[in-house]
């Protein structure tokens, strides 16, 4: 029996990730296979419940010498993938810094602080400053919904709320509008206001925001700063441990 199992394992296709052999199932991406094996590849726009988006590029790995987004790249037999290298982590830090300066991310007065994946990645990648010049863009805050606040200052355009609203909630409340630096989250209502949509506070789209752009009203600071998800555990430990965060 044991021999049969070992034989079937050896027949499973596999690739190398930082020298470790990872088996994968047909159709899995590098990210899928890594998450299944409990190996952390930094990411923001990816969530295992949703179709890959491939936009934040934080999950960039080197495959046979070329940079690719691991959340969209199908795993293939014999691939040699590099993930946790100083060069890739430096590039990831630079991308995180760009995300910080492109929006208005002021952690000291953000309710998401301590539970925010952008911030947690900053900690994980040892980002000590945003490094680049801040854009300080003008972004609209929408408080029209009775139970949900939309603060575009903190939006990182990951489209997780767009995907969750369409694929899980079946509502199509959110979309991205504009181009390039003018890209912004839009709300599917003639007024453009969240209060005029059928969004419910229990929707997956409200829960899935990795930053403080979509927040439930009247739940602020229920958990004190210092006792939050990433205050004592790294995003790597959280996402490869007891849940995705």
């Amino acid at each position: 029996m044991r021999r049969i199992w070992a034989l079937s394992m050896s027949l499973k296709p596999s690739f190398s990730l930082d020298g470790q052999t990872l088996a994968f199932l047909s159709g899995q991406t590098i990210m899928d296979a890594a998450l299944a094996a409990g190996v952390y590849i930094p990411h923001l726009c990816h969530h295992p419940e949703f179709k890959p988006h491939g936009s934040c590029k934080l999950c960039t790995v080197k495959v046979n010498g070329r940079n690719v987004a691991s959340c969209t790249m199908p795993a293939a037999e014999g691939m040699v993938v590099l993930n946790d290298t100083p060069e890739l982590n430096e590039a990831r830090r630079a991308l995180t810094q760009m995300l910080f300066v492109e929006g208005n991310h002021f952690c000291p007065f953000c309710e998401k602080s301590g539970n925010c994946q952008l911030q947690a990645l900053g900690y994980f990648l040892e980002m000590l400053s945003p490094h680049y010049n801040h854009f300080y863009p003008q972004r609209e805050v929408d408080g029209s919904h009775p139970e949900v606040l939309l603060d575009r200052n903190r939006c990182i355009m990951c489209e997780l709320c767009v995907r969750a609203s369409q694929d899980v909630d079946g509502k199509n409340v959110f979309a991205l509008g504009g181009r390039g630096v003018h890209t912004h989250l839009i709300v599917n209502a003639p007024s453009g206001k969240l209060g005029d949509t059928d969004l419910a506070v229990s929707d997956r789209a409200v829960q899935v925001c990795p930053v403080g752009a979509i927040l439930k009203k009247r739940h602020g600071f229920e958990v004190p700063i210092g006792q939050r998800l990433y205050d004592h555990k790294t995003i790597k430990d959280v996402q490869t441990g007891d849940g995705h965060g």
Binding site: H105, F106, P108, S129, H134, Q138, N153
Partner: peptide, 12 residues
């Protein structure tokens, strides 16, 4: 000093 912080709230 690192990001502008609370005083930078007036930037909008």
């Amino acid at each position: 000093a690192v990001t502008g912080g609370i005083p930078a709230m007036r930037n909008s």
